[in-house]
């Protein structure tokens, strides 16, 4: 993943939805100082949080009966599978976020 400079912020917001871009700006603007707002780590966090939106809102990608799983149509088991996938993704985002915060708290006394 390419390293983004803080100046790239507006363009990235257009690509990533409002909800996830927001996640990356969780530090007050005033403390940006030395550390960039957007780091590769934060991009990964944003992607983790954004992925379920793409998967679930793209209904035509899963609106079918085949293949069945234990007799349950694809439409249903696929969405239930996404409950698990999105849980894992949110957990990853949570762990990465903790890393990010620890790094920042160590960096400047906030």
């Amino acid at each position: 993943m390419e390293r983004k400079r803080p100046l790239d912020f507006p363009s990235i917001t257009e690509v990533i939805s409002e909800g996830t871009a927001i996640a990356m700006s969780d530090t007050p603007d005033a403390t940006q100082g030395k550390q960039p707002t957007i780091t590769p780590l934060r991009v990964v966090i944003a992607l983790c949080l954004f992925a379920p939106f793409v998967a679930m809102l793209w209904v035509s990608s899963y609106a079918r009966v085949e293949p069945l799983l234990a007799g349950i149509p694809f439409f249903y088991w696929y969405q239930m599978l996404w409950v698990l996938i999105s849980t894992v993704l949110t957990m990853v985002a949570y762990k990465l976020w903790q890393l990010d915060q620890r790094a920042r708290k160590g960096g400047d006394a906030r």
Binding site: G19, I22, A23, L49, P52, M56, W82, S86, L89, A93
Partner: peptide, 10 residues
């Protein structure tokens, strides 16, 4: 309910 949690995380 899948979408709620990544959303409120932010």
């Amino acid at each position: 309910t899948i979408l709620v949690y990544p959303l409120i995380f932010t």
